[in-house]
Nucleic acid binder design. Structure first.
Lengths: 336, 336
DNA sequence: TTGAAAGCGGTACCAA
DNA sequence: TTGGTACCGCTTTCAA
């Protein structure tokens, strides 16, 4: 039995020319009909529209973009869309972009440097500016984004063309440690980000805050960026240091995994183990107990990034570093 | 003090022509240099590249797309990126798209018909195909997506050009109700989707399943699509029907809100109140108790949608309705 | 190895 | 109200 689809019959793209011929008019007239211009006879317009429909015509976005030069597309690069933190940022960025009539192409790099490179490579010819998280060296980002505004989130920049949204958690983490100390905790551990060469900035904040309270800062273990990772890390931490009574985590997802693990281990939270996360996810409100966290305003973060992109694109009045900061602050809930 | 930025100095877009002139070659030579062609002298190439860099030149993606016709961009339309279910689907779709070298523009319609229309309007001239969730009438979707493949998720279609990924939860919901009945529950309520004119399909599955077990099916209240909404709905349900001992919910987010509310009300889960959600979110594993749910394979859902788009775009061998189904099945955990 | 010319598929400006 | 023509910025083909 032969398939009814005939090879080689692949319908070549229908162009404005085809419509024009089919309707017996010129291309310009077709253009007028499709763009709702006034200078066209009603019946002509109708005829053109019918022809277009009949042929299944759709204007080429490239041709149109070429002549109109009015569409802006932003590339949003994110390590892991399944981590609610990045989802919240993405949602905020999408909304900020929509109010400007911009389009956002989203790339999930799965937190892999290799994917990051691939994305960068491909992105440069598809968008007008880039916003997002990158872990690869700045000169690589620089290399692939030649001539394009770039806004980095949560990371310093050197390149002039780049901007950074700085995440300032120093105060917040200090408050968190202070809170724990005030509650009588002296053995405070941390579940840090795993897999990076150097310790995270958040860890540095933690270390500094702990030291300033005369608290030991040696009890740090790395955790995978997931709830499971957080659980496993807590287990390791408690095995190595059974006397730990409080933990600060790199982010909320890890903290949530830690909460679950604590429950499994029969450790009461917050009585026997206090947990403080970082991010302030909405998700933290639905776990038990609700998660105490050093919270970021993710809406502001996303909106700020898009705002800066807007300024960089128009070249007017870009925000200075001092305005490109999102401060985290301690938000108390049930877990500490 | 006068600002140093001079109005009217806005740098006109640098084109290939500018680079050519600056390097003292023709445009084609510039093109060759930039696209790593062989037929070019090494020193010439270097000179062109330098000129391009100096001018901050970036090729127009429109001009390039126009002539190369090789980039595919999909529009992914989602009601609410903050709902983890849609995030999971989106992540799956992004990954499936990436393996094909496609770009995905994401639009969050905030579950509002108005935004849906705006998105549809704008999308048609920006993408090659559309995948996603729509709540507005099919003829509106049809109107704006003229000539473009469309894959609807979780919704039937009539239009020939459209495809649907069907979500089949009939079996799964039946199993869920059977499970509850086997556990001795006879008063089973439902927290349904709110804000739609007609009752949801999931409610119909529930009603049918309950009826087949001789269980009353009248105890349904609407819930907002959020944890808070789920909590509020549970409260209303229990107020109206204090004898309810089990609830089935429209989705997991609502169920998670219900779990939290149950805790606040002092109702033990699952002993005094059994809860079963729908979606099978990864998130369900981190709440307490872990959520029993009628689970969907979101990875498959997203991948299937992209797969079908691929077939529609090439016109070869689109999947038939029977293959465009994702079945949900009961996944037991702690909450029921 | 390089350049001239012809498109890619539209829209804008003009004259008819 | 219409159509001719130029042009948007780039790549491809073909000569030089």
């Amino acid at each position: 039995m032969v398939s009814s689809s005939v090879p080689g019959t692949e319908p070549r793209k229908v162009t404005i020319h085809d419509v024009a011929r089919s309707a017996g008019v010129s291309r310009q007239t077709v253009s007028r009909a499709l763009n709702d211009k006034d200078e066209i006879d009603h019946s002509t317009k109708q005829r053109v529209l019918d022809a277009a429909r009949a042929l299944g015509y759709r204007p080429s976005r490239f041709a149109r973009g070429l002549v109109r030069q009015d569409t802006t597309t932003i590339g949003l690069v994110i390590p892991d869309l399944l981590n609610p933190f990045f989802t919240e940022v993405a949602a905020a960025a999408l909304e900020a972009a929509r109010t400007r009539g911009w389009h956002v192409v989203v790339y999930d790099t799965a937190d892999r440097a290799e994917e990051e490179r691939g994305t960068l490579q491909v992105i440069s010819s598809q968008v007008d500016a880039v916003v997002g998280y990158f872990s690869c060296p700045e000169d690589e980002v620089e290399l692939y984004t030649r001539g394009m505004p770039v806004v980095l989130i949560g990371r310093e920049h050197r390149t002039a063309r780049f901007s950074s949204i700085r995440i300032d958690g120093e105060q917040g983490v200090h408050s968190a440690v202070a809170h724990l100390v005030a509650r009588g905790h002296t053995r405070i551990g941390m579940l840090d980000h795993d897999g990076r060469a150097e310790p995270s900035v958040r860890r540095e904040w933690f270390t500094a805050a702990a030291a300033s309270h005369g608290v030991d800062t040696e009890m740090v273990v790395g955790a995978d960026q997931s709830a499971d990772g957080g659980g496993a890390a807590l287990k390791r931490l408690l095995t190595a240091h059974p006397d730990v009574t409080a933990v600060f985590t790199f982010n909320d997802i890890i903290a949530i995994g830690a909460l679950r693990e604590a429950r499994r281990l029969g450790r009461n939270v917050p009585q026997e183990l206090a947990v403080i996360g970082f991010d302030g996810l909405q998700l933290g409100a639905v776990v038990e107990p609700p998660l105490t966290s050093v919270a970021l305003d993710t809406r502001r973060l996303g909106a700020l990034a898009i705002e800066q992109v807007a300024r960089l694109l128009t070249g007017v009045d870009p925000l200075a570093a001092d305005d490109l900061v999102v401060r985290a602050e301690l938000r108390l809930a049930g877990s500490a």
